[in-house]
Amino acid sequence: MTLLAVERIKLFSTRSPWWCVVVAVGLTVGFTALMSGFANEQGTVTVGFTQFSYQFGLMVLMVMAVLAVTTEYRFGTIRTTFQTAPNRAAVLTAKALLVAVLAGVVALAAAFLSFWVSDLLATNSDLSLSGADAWRNVAGTGLVAFLAAVLSVAVGILLRQSAAAVTVVLVWPLLVEGLVSLIPRIGQDIQSWMPFVAAHHFLFGGQPDSAEAAMMMGMSDVPYGPWAGIAYFGAISVGLFVVAVITASRRDA
């Protein structure tokens, strides 16, 4: 608990996390508002439609999570941190947990705001949060952001440099996972097992418009269910985090 409180003080005594939160919510909700506003004519606004722009917020929150670690390496405060609390595994776990909870809460807020804004603007569509699929889609973004933040913290610990780590967490989900499907014959199968594809499937899989959603992301169909998708994504995030903590505990600070 002490370490969580410490990480809270650290995170909120600089300005960049605040900006990240504002930008994450603003981008997600703003883009959804544009989409829903212009789609109102056709009356095609669905629950899934209100959540497509979750990726904007997610990327910003992942950058925030990366920076929470890499700035400590950049300014040498990681050494001060390990000096005040020599149990590195505990310190890094507290940091990951705090950043992940923040990312989760912010993403959740952005998701419900997006839904609410769409509901206001898309007067021709009949939007309602009914059924497990719809709830999973909206509330699930919190869980995805939580796990994505853990993954980002792990990448930050492993690479220690802001530029390198930010590049990885942006280029991987935005480019690598999409382009991998271009590999002939095996590309589609590999893509189904990409972590962010799995997370995306958790949010949009099983919905009436999931085929449309998949098409928008340039995605192939996946051979597992939504909950298996998030479990897989979580396993990769936590697995990478464990590797990062072991690495950090062994090497020189």
Binding site: T2, A5, I9, S13, F75, G76, T77, T80
Partner: peptide, 23 residues
Amino acid sequence: LDAKWVHPNRSARAHLRWMARTN
């Protein structure tokens, strides 16, 4: 060990506060 191991955007008080809190 190094006086520059401080986050430049954090105040002196906040820097010492988080250190104090750890212990």
